[in-house]
């Protein structure tokens, strides 16, 4: 889809989002974009506001100020059209542990309104793509952490969303499973032209990003491609870049001499 100016419209746009929690400003003036087929990383320490931002993008919270557009639809006024275009893997698992893999996938298809015959085809494909075919009849509580995460990813893609939101999706996985999971998400992003917003606090998940947003204490303190950010801030490593940006933000906020 292209905008009036001829530029491709982002699948996700947030404009100056603000959110307060018990009168404390948790997110402040967050503006960001994710385009089709783009792998965007939102890097931030625990408590930076990543999950709150995801809750605003998915409509679980309503922002105090600002707007969210998903595939051009305003989340506030065209909520259902906007939500239909996103797939989410939340930080906390949202699969039903009492049901089987297949039952979980069927349930999601029904929530998304996918016709039974289409659902059957989509589920079979998803199970195969994510190496879950042999586990289809097994209850979720019998799966390993990695298998459960793969199931969440498979489920999030069943309705072919334009935008995939991954909120600390690798939490609790060992290094090998994390790498495999990240690579399979990247592959999906490239193959299906799905826009991905990947929230993480782990530096080793940042390297593959097409674009990086650094969230610190509820504010985007830097954004750009990794090479551009490294050059701009005269840093040679991502670790160094992160420390530099966060320290700069802290000293800016506390004023000179802090």
């Amino acid at each position: 889809m292209e905008s009036a100016s001829g530029q491709e419209q982002p699948v996700l746009e947030t404009h100056q989002l603000c959110f307060s929690f018990h009168s404390k400003r948790v997110l402040d003036d967050v503006t960001m974009h994710v385009h089709k087929g783009q792998f965007v990383v939102l890097l931030g320490a625990n408590g930076a506001g990543k999950t709150t931002l995801f809750s605003l993008i998915t409509g679980l919270y309503a922002s105090d100020l600002g707007q969210v557009f998903i595939g051009g639809s305003d989340l506030r006024t065209r909520t259902q059209q906007a939500l239909a275009q996103i797939g989410v893997v939340f930080q906390k698992p949202t699969i039903d542990r009492d049901l089987s893999v297949l039952q979980n996938l069927r349930y999601f298809c029904q929530l998304q309104g996918i016709a039974r015959s289409d659902a059957k085809t989509q589920i079979a494909l998803a199970l195969e793509q994510h190496s879950l075919s042999e586990l289809a009849g097994r209850k979720v509580m019998q799966l390993s952490g990695g298998q459960q995460r793969r199931l969440e990813l498979a489920r999030a893609l069943l309705h072919k969303p334009e935008l995939l939101l991954m909120d600390e999706a690798t939490v609790g996985l060992d290094h090998e499973s994390r790498t495999a999971f990240l690579n399979s998400t990247l592959q999906l992003c490239r193959d299906n032209k799905t826009g991905v917003l990947w929230a993480t606090h782990l530096m080793d998940e940042v390297a593959s990003a097409d674009y990086l947003y650094l969230l610190h204490q509820g504010k985007i303190v830097a954004h750009g491609t990794i090479p551009a950010l490294l050059a701009q801030h005269q840093q040679s490593t991502l670790d160094g870049l992160y420390r530099h940006l966060v320290q700069t933000d802290v000293s800016t906020n506390q004023g000179p001499g802090a």
């Binding site: 239909a84 989410v88 906390k92 698992p93 949202t94 699969i95 998304q112």
Partner: peptide, 12 residues
């Protein structure tokens, strides 16, 4: 447990 989130982000 989080599964309520799944329901509430459904497009209905």
């Amino acid at each position: 447990m989080g599964s309520m989130r799944l329901l509430l982000v459904s497009p209905l």
